[in-house]
Design a binder for these strands. Structure first.
Lengths: 227, 227
DNA sequence: ACGCCGCCTTGATCTAGCGCAACTTGAGGC
DNA sequence: GCCTCAAGTTGCGCTAGATCAAGGCGGCGT
């Protein structure tokens, strides 16, 4: 779980085409893996989208920026998640490795062109896109109408579902990342977590504020039961 | 443009299956049209999704509610837009006619099952879903990180693009609808619009606060140029 | 060991937007 | 015409969350 304090970028492909393509005939064949060091960029908003990605290990954040630096994190991608799917051929988010992350690169033969050819492929793309859409829809309700405590509770419930192992919720991301995901400030996130700890809903363990044990999922869900 | 002050529900199909199906063999054949009176519900969240819809005339709002009544409007659908597409077979939003609205009903043979059969069909569903997803992604940035003035400016720009005719932006929805779309209160929307009017960015016409002329699109865009 | 640094927490204050209320205006009914 | 009602505007506090600031803590490099 230890991170490098000074993230040193691995030699990553500056343009994705530098990766080459070993078995380029079938567009859904996994080509190769690549590892990104903590904090490094996987691709930037508005870059041409030549690949889609599947997380093998690690965590990825996907976000948009306003020109003055305000950031909205759209999603965290964990092992098994696919990301980077777009229709316009251009990425709509910047993605970065939250921790050291290994991804599988999947060549993207222009999805718009492929639409009519392979129903099975397109069907799985549709399913993935639907999954992303459902998440975005739920997140709009959170961002538009939920209080800070409700947002943090919803976040914990989501992360508990997605990445709790051995009873411990080991968050890979910082308070700032959480804040930018929930449309709050890092201080408000910290205060909400402290509040939940005081209420006995959760506890920090291992002398690590990212290692959380949920003591009362019932009560936690109660803070988001207005849903 | 005149509306009934007291919305009287037309006899609408309580369950969509009551609509019957004339040419049910091809799932993408338009079956029939239906008209909903201003304010009436088209379908509710968690209802089974038997049809998808295309707006022929009018405007539809799509939203989620929290149990205490807080509402987040996800999208406004105008003529040409398709809505009601979902994968789980269950609607994730409630939709209502903002004005008297006529829709085309399209029978939805379980999309999950259809996925592998007709690539062209699935491809067009994928395109629609991608379009919805892109909108949702942009809206998350707005809801999570933009100021009230930026939100209202972005709203006006979106609506200007989608429904300005003859130089007049004729908004079909109330201030409350706009507020619930932008994650604000109706008062804040009203104040922001007044502020933009004082600045000469827009003007109300026809003695109707929903009829807006944009006097300075350049300056208006400036309030959302942090994007 | 020591100091630095990134991350987090906590306290104090500030403010954008909310909530409440009064008032205006236009449309429809009679 | 007059009344009612829905929708919108505006003013005036108020508060949830932002902002500013101080301090703690653990890991890492030297």
């Amino acid at each position: 779980m230890l991170m490098h304090a000074t993230p040193v970028s691995l030699p990553r492909p500056h343009s994705l085409s530098e990766l080459g393509m070993s078995a380029a005939s079938n567009p859904m064949v996994s080509l190769r893996e690549f590892t990104y060091r903590r904090g490094s960029e996987i691709y930037g908003e508005k870059e041409p989208a030549e690949y889609i990605y599947q997380v093998k290990s690690g965590t990825v954040r996907s976000y948009k920026l306003l020109s003055d630096g305000r950031r909205q994190i759209n999603a965290f991608h964990i092992p098994g998640d696919t990301f980077g799917l777009t229709n316009g051929g251009v990425h709509r988010f910047t993605t970065e490795a939250v921790t050291d992350t290994t991804v599988r690169l999947i060549r993207r033969e222009s999805l718009d062109a492929v639409a009519g050819s392979d129903g099975t492929l397109t069907g799985s793309l549709l399913h993935m896109t639907m999954t992303n859409l459902r998440h975005a829809e739920d997140h709009m309700l959170l961002l538009g109408r939920k209080t800070s405590l409700e947002r943090v509770a919803a976040f914990l419930i989501e992360m508990d579902r997605r990445l709790t192992a051995a009873g411990v919720l080991a968050l890979p991301m910082s308070r700032r990342d959480i804040a930018d995901y929930l449309g709050l400030t890092l201080e408000t996130v910290s205060r909400s977590l402290s509040h939940l700890r005081e209420l006995g809903v959760l506890a920090f363990i291992d002398n690590n504020q990212r290692h959380i044990v949920l003591m009362d999922r019932q009560q936690l869900a109660g803070f988001d039961r207005r849903n």
